[in-house]
């Protein structure tokens, strides 16, 4: 019941494999023995201190050099252990995957961004995770490996509920793959929080592909409104293939709240989230649209508003 955040009271055995193969071997060996993997620790260690999460074996991933990479030559390929702050140093993140850039800059503060990872953001499966809506908007896939095999899962399908993913105990996220964005695509991420450096009350990523005055394709993904990330597919359909007029945007904004059905919690109320989702969608669509042709000028402020 009581927590202790001054120490880590939980005793466990510790592994720090140096290679992926070694790591997968260990997972295979200890999969039934309450093993957990540790990346930046910004979620896992917090939970081990504050909620009843005990582990018997802890495997540290950051000594595995082969998982610490990012490749932007053809789409994005992001290794499991590269910290957020290194990801945003890549120019293409800012210019082509603007929503992801903004999502990362909206996370906590520099020290946390030096520690935390995208794989951890996914593995933690919090409905408020900031990179998830952005990655889903870019159709990200997750490469999951165990000793025997690999599988690729669409990011949006990986979540089963708050704190729950479909990963099996012997599996590891090794890489996040994001397809090359189509030409004339713009994107935006917006987060609302109580004070700026805070978990989202509600967050949203939008990616729009433009064809003349028409919206060729679009993705609208909300976080922090339900148990898992929510794609507003009906609203997307409404916009697809049409000229993105102010009227159409208003229509989309009106409808989106019904589609995402937000919840009440300590950070906010459903009512507020409904009101917010409308305004955020309007703003995000406009921002993303404005970025479809021009060189993206992301909102460098980051953080919530």
């Amino acid at each position: 019941m009581h927590t202790n955040t001054r120490i880590l009271a939980n005793k466990f055995e510790y592994f720090a494999p140096k290679s992926l193969a070694e790591a997968l071997n260990l997972l295979e060996q200890y999969q039934e023995k309450n093993i957990k993997v540790l990346a930046g620790g910004t979620d896992l260690l917090v939970k081990m201190k504050t909620v009843d999460l005990n582990v018997d074996y802890l495997m540290y991933l950051k000594d595995i050099a082969e998982l610490n990479f990012i490749n932007t030559s053809n789409g994005l390929s992001i290794g499991a252990t590269i910290p957020f702050s290194h990801i945003v140093k890549e120019d293409r993140i800012k210019t082509e995957y603007t929503a992801l850039y903004e999502a990362i800059q909206a996370i906590a503060a520099p020290a946390i961004r030096n520690m935390g990872t995208i794989a951890g953001n996914i593995g933690n499966a919090s409905p408020a995770a900031d990179t998830v809506p952005a990655l889903v908007a870019f159709d990200a896939q997750v490469l999951i490996e165990n000793k025997q095999s690999k599988r690729t899962v669409l990011l949006k399908d990986i979540f089963l509920g708050p704190g729950k993913t479909l990963l099996r105990p012997d599996e590891l996220i090794t890489r996040i793959e994001v397809p090359q964005v189509k030409p004339n695509t713009g994107s935006a991420f917006i987060k609302k929080s109580r004070v700026k450096a805070d978990l989202a009350k509600i967050n949203l990523a939008v990616a729009v592909q433009r064809n003349g005055q028409n919206c060729e394709d679009c993705k609208i993904v909300f976080g922090s409104v339900a148990a898992t990330v929510v794609r507003a597919e009906n609203t997307e359909k409404l916009l697809k293939g049409k000229a993105l007029t102010e009227e159409l945007i208003s229509q989309a904004a009106q409808g989106v709240a019904d589609e995402i059905k937000p919840i009440d919690d300590i950070r906010s109320t459903a009512e507020y989230r409904i009101a917010m989702s409308r305004e955020m969608l309007r703003d995000a669509l406009n921002l993303a649209w404005a970025r479809t042709y021009s060189e993206a000028k992301p909102n460098l402020k980051g953080g919530g508003e």
Partner: peptide
């Protein structure tokens, strides 16, 4: 009590 951390009990940061 429901607000037992700085994440739940928010005090102003430099940005606010």
């Amino acid at each position: 009590p429901k607000t037992l951390s700085f994440a739940e009990y928010r005090i102003p940061s430099s940005l606010d």
